[in-house]
Design a protein around this nucleic acid. Structure first.
Lengths: 246, 246
DNA sequence: CGTTCCATTGAGACCCGTCAATTTCAGTGG
DNA sequence: CCACTGAAATTGACGGGTCTCAATGGAACG
């Protein structure tokens, strides 16, 4: 059923022939989304597959930062620690997310796997050369950076002006949407992170997260499922709460 | 006293011949920093000078967003409003800062001038074409995006985990550093924004900002100068406070 | 079956928000 | 030069949402 356009470059490499990118679930989501076959080949040659287990760190805050990553499978938390031990999780990464836009010479965050993780790793220098060679890659990177900035903005609003209840509602809605994009079930949210992680992401304490979680449950907006998952039973009301309408 | 390298391109346009970029104070700081003469010429042809007075908005949250801007002179606040009126200022822009990375079709923030403002405006489509034509421009944009992401990260830590005192200390330190970069006096911080703006930026109320300001004054770290300015009288102690050491 | 880690629940304290009064200051006009 | 005015900033008293400290419950694991 395939038809080949007469305008397509005959010498190009088919996407299906690039290993291991051909079977990579993250490819249509990551920086490499818009690349043609031969470009993808070029990427693959300069990358390295990395597998780490849950709890392992990809990079440490303050350390030299010679790599950039693309998450292929699994989840990552990014965090910074204040001198007295207070921790703030600045973001979570999932399939297709890129790590390495900020902090070129020295990492400003620690990146730690939440689950067994598979990632695609590039030397910074190599990646910069790839950027030079492929405008489509740099375009895509600008686009991803824009998305990240919008997400950061959203988080700033959450931390600056929302109540604990609104924060948790926003968190569950956003995580649910993200997982839906990645092919997950509607209104079923997987939480690969602990309550402490959620608290440190939302600027709260573990106790407050726990209390608010039961409040949302009691008021019928969510159900707590076995295995640390959550079902959103009243999406409309949870969304209204998340956006601060009341 | 000038010497012309024999390797330089003879046909290139000298930077001094590009108007109005030649005299633009923001050029070495903005997206156009790394551009050669003919490239700058190309930028100038596709841009438009915009002047607005203090209090005027460049873009409104939720409106279509057909332009990107580069701040030439003056200061801007970016903010979002929740349905019930709560406001969060997500950032301030100064000379050389770029506006338009996130929210391509619809603006996610309102951008409002704090002072009389001069900016360089591009149609989004034109700017995208410029990006295509000039790799150096897109490189610079990626770099600026990385800086913005790091700043956003910093703000997330501030809002998530710092006390009111630490927030204000961080704010004054950061603003002072920024103004020093722009040629301002050391330890002398200009505040073009009101207490309400500061409060809405730091996730506090106007009263708390005022109270903490006098606390910092009383403890000898700052002095309040006429004209809403601040002098940092004990930079070391203020910095230690800002970073959360105690 | 004990250990360990994580989540939940409760009681009290504290930081910051809310509400309200007062002061300061810049701008204006007499 | 001074009084008037309105907005912004400061200061005070009080209350509430979240944190702290502490105990209990519950699931995974050896």
């Amino acid at each position: 059923m395939k038809t080949v356009s007469p305008l397509s470059e005959q010498k190009d490499i088919a996407l299906e022939d690039v290993h291991p990118c051909a079977t990579c679930g993250a490819r249509p989501l990551g920086v490499c989304a818009d690349l043609k076959g031969h470009e993808l080949q070029n990427m693959a040659c300069n990358s390295e597959n990395v597998n780490v287990s849950a709890g392992q760190a990809l990079v440490h805050e303050g350390d030299p930062n010679p790599f950039v990553f693309n998450v292929v499978e699994g989840a990552v938390k990014l965090y910074r620690i204040l001198p007295d031990g207070r921790r703030q999780i600045t973001g979570f990464l999932f399939q297709g997310d890129f790590l390495g836009l900020g902090g070129r010479s020295v990492s400003t965050v620690t990146a730690e796997a939440l689950t067994p993780l598979q990632a695609c790793r590039f030397k910074r220098g190599d990646f910069d050369q790839l950027l030079n060679a492929m405008p489509a890659l740099e375009h895509r990177l600008v686009s991803l950076a824009g998305d990240e900035l919008m997400a950061a903005q959203e988080q700033i609003v959450l931390l600056g002006r929302k109540t604990a209840k609104e924060r948790l509602a926003s968190f569950l809605i956003r995580l649910g949407e993200r997982q839906q994009q990645l092919g997950g079930a509607v209104n079923h949210v997987l939480l690969p992170m602990t309550r402490l992680d959620i608290a440190d992401y939302l600027g709260l304490t573990i106790e407050t997260v726990s209390r608010v979680m039961t409040q949302l449950k009691t008021s019928g907006m969510i159900r707590l499922l076995p295995g640390n998952d959550v079902e959103i039973t009243d999406p409309d009301r949870l969304l209204a709460l998340a956006e601060g309408e009341g």
